[in-house]
């Protein structure tokens, strides 16, 4: 199966992949509406690091619900990293109630109606590819439940939105087996 693979040498830290991801997964799929009307407004302060996504939501500064995230060391290294759709996914192995599952086509997906927001997946995922979506909650009586949030490889698209949006081709959509042979990535 194909997954999205980042090439760090090409990444210019522009975060357009995050924007494309947010828009693609918005109700309207329109950037202006997604950001200004749907309330997913991007805020540097809150989105850079949000200890509690609910606080951001209450403060009117929700963490953008991007499913990929540009990781940056502040010293010139950056790349966008999202779910690798592992063949033996640690998140699925850790999921308390089977909300995360391996779809027939190999994608790792979330049953959004079942997730209880226990963060076992966040604990388990070595890639830090799962975040919290505070706009939903399935557990009654817990104000601050949220559900997990992760890359679904854009089911409505042939090529994921982040890959299409990346201006420097720092994200490529590639067969898993080809990654190990992809010497461009490893040679520089």
């Amino acid at each position: 199966m194909k997954v999205v693979f980042p090439i760090e040498e090409r990444c210019i830290d522009c975060h357009l992949c995050e924007v494309a991801c947010i828009v693609e997964h918005s109700e309207t799929k329109d950037p202006i509406l997604a950001y200004m009307v749907e309330g997913l407004s991007f805020n540097e302060e809150w989105s850079a690091f949000t200890p509690d996504p609910h606080e951001a939501l209450e403060a009117g500064k929700p963490k953008p619900l991007n499913r990929t995230r540009v990781r940056n060391n502040g010293a010139g290294v950056s790349f966008s990293m999202m779910c690798r759709h592992c063949e033996e996914p640690k998140c699925v192995e850790a999921c308390k109630n089977g909300s995360l599952y391996i779809a027939e086509d190999g994608r790792i997906l979330l049953n959004e109606d079942k997730c209880v927001g226990c963060w076992m997946c966040i604990m388990a995922c070595p890639w830090g590819a799962i975040s919290r979506n505070p706009t939903r909650g399935n557990v009654k009586g817990l104000e601050r439940t949220a559900i997990s949030h992760k890359c679904d490889l854009c089911p409505d698209r042939e090529i994921p939105a982040c890959v299409m949006a990346c201006p420097t081709e720092a994200l490529i959509y590639i067969e898993k087996e080809e990654i190990k042979n992809y010497e461009v990535r490893f040679s520089r």
Partner: peptide
């Protein structure tokens, strides 16, 4: 958020000396 990276560092038994000063940062990552 993203603390699973520490699972990777622990399980792979990687020497963290060269980036130890970054481990507690808000945006610590790969």
């Amino acid at each position: 958020d993203r603390v699973g990276i520490f699972r990777y560092l622990i399980e792979r038994k990687l020497d963290v000396t060269s980036f130890k000063e970054h481990l507690l940062k808000d945006d610590f990552d790969y």
